Simulated scan of single mutants.
Amino acid sequence: MPILVRSASLTKFSEIAAHAGIDPVRALRDAGLDLSCLTTPDLRIPETSLARVFEVSLAGGAGQAECRTLGARIGEAWRLSDFGSLSLLLQHQPTLREALARIELYRHLLSDSVSVQVEEIEDTAVLHVALVTARPDPGPEIVELTVGAVLSLVRAMLGAQYAPRGVHFAHAAPERLQVHRRFFGARIEFDSEFDGIVMARGDLDRANPLADSHLARYAQELIDLQPRYGEASLADNVRRAIHLLLPRGAGTIEPVSARLGLTPRTLQRQLEQDGEKFSALVNEVRGSLAVRYLAQPRHAVADISDRLGFSEPSAFSRWFSAEFGQPPSRWRAEQGARGGH
């Protein structure tokens, strides 16, 4: 089943592309998308098609530096109303914590690709943003757009001038940072261990002065009346959880099942009923992450091995060779020779 996302990102793209010297109509045509995506934010489109729009834009001859800011600019332009049918519900949640919980609960209305997990450590909260895509690397523009949309939700709840403790990206920094610093703030870190936002833990529970419980209940009743077509399968939800948890050393069935509100035994049984196995899903996600990390030279093979849950680099090398037909070091060298990342 294809990974689908709302076309809201493309309605924003159409407003911003011209400033970067990009023809949005041509970009969509080259990506094989209907032009209605530029004006209709609630269409469901393949995530790969959204990525293709960015690819053809970057290859279209416009200034590379300008194109490299597209994701950040779209995130900067994001507003609460761009969350579509969830907007009213999110606006009237009592706290940011509750709003983030609603994002996860109604993810099927927004994106099959994105997941946000809150990690709390002493007085700090980390909003981990993970993207599950059909490609090993979702691409920096897509990641920045997504983290930017989450930051826009945070600022809608906590104030337009809210400055987080930090914004982190696992990819390398672009050549120019003016747009990124203007939107994400001065405390932006690239080549990080994760994609997401770091904030004070207390900000999660700061009271929203605009919250109205009656309007929230009304919005939720309206949403619950909508058909739940295209809702992600259990296997898709497990994949998302593994993407979030595996790089943090928690990719075993216990924390994954806990995140999904199931016992490990129940999770295994339900997966088996669908013809899936937890171990196979872990292996699939490992393969996707391994290729993504190896394509980025700054990640040492030993570090990748540790992030993917292997006891030692030799175990990772044996596994990778069995999956991809060659050791990770050789795979990386060949990708570099082909002009990869």
Rank of each mutant, 00 (worst) to 15 (best):
A211W: 07
A290C: 04
T124Y: 04
A160E: 15
N237Y: 08
A186P: 02
L289Q: 07
N283K: 14
W331N: 05
L80P: 06
E276M: 12
S113C: 08
E284L: 15
E334Q: 15
G159N: 06
S305M: 03
R155I: 04
I242F: 01
F184A: 04
L204G: 12
R73T: 07
G340W: 15
A211H: 07
F278D: 13
Q270I: 06
E119P: 03
I22E: 01
S14C: 10
F83A: 09
A315V: 14
S305I: 02
L10Q: 05
G166T: 10
G287T: 03
Q178L: 15
P94M: 09
Q226D: 04
L127K: 07
L33T: 01
L109C: 00
I223G: 02
L234V: 07
G32D: 12
L294W: 02
R298D: 02
G261M: 09
V25R: 14
L204N: 14
A315Y: 12
H92S: 11
A186Y: 06
H92L: 13
S314C: 13
R240G: 08
N237D: 15
A51N: 00
D23F: 01
I242T: 07
L204T: 09
S314P: 02
S49F: 01
V147G: 08
V282M: 13
T48A: 15
L245G: 01
A59E: 12
T133M: 02
E144I: 04
F190C: 01
D82W: 06
V285A: 05
A59C: 08
P255E: 09
A51E: 04
V147M: 11
A101Q: 11
G202H: 07
A258G: 08
Q296L: 09
I142K: 10
L153Y: 06
G202A: 14
A18K: 10
R206M: 00
R286T: 12
F310N: 00
S279E: 14
L153Q: 04
L151S: 01
T263R: 11
L70C: 01
V179C: 03
G325I: 09
P255F: 12
T146G: 06
G309A: 05
S111W: 09
R338L: 14
H19S: 12
W78M: 13
V198E: 14
H341M: 09
P247R: 02
A219G: 11
V25K: 12
D112L: 02
L50S: 01
I223Q: 08
G21T: 05
A59K: 15
E55L: 13
L110W: 13
A241T: 01
E120H: 11
V301M: 12
R332V: 03
L225E: 15
M157E: 13
L260Y: 00
G202W: 07
L89C: 02
L38N: 04
P2L: 04
L70Y: 00
I253M: 01
S49C: 09
D205F: 01
P174R: 06
V129E: 02
T133Y: 03
A51V: 00
R259M: 13
I188C: 06
Q296W: 13
V154D: 02
A207S: 09
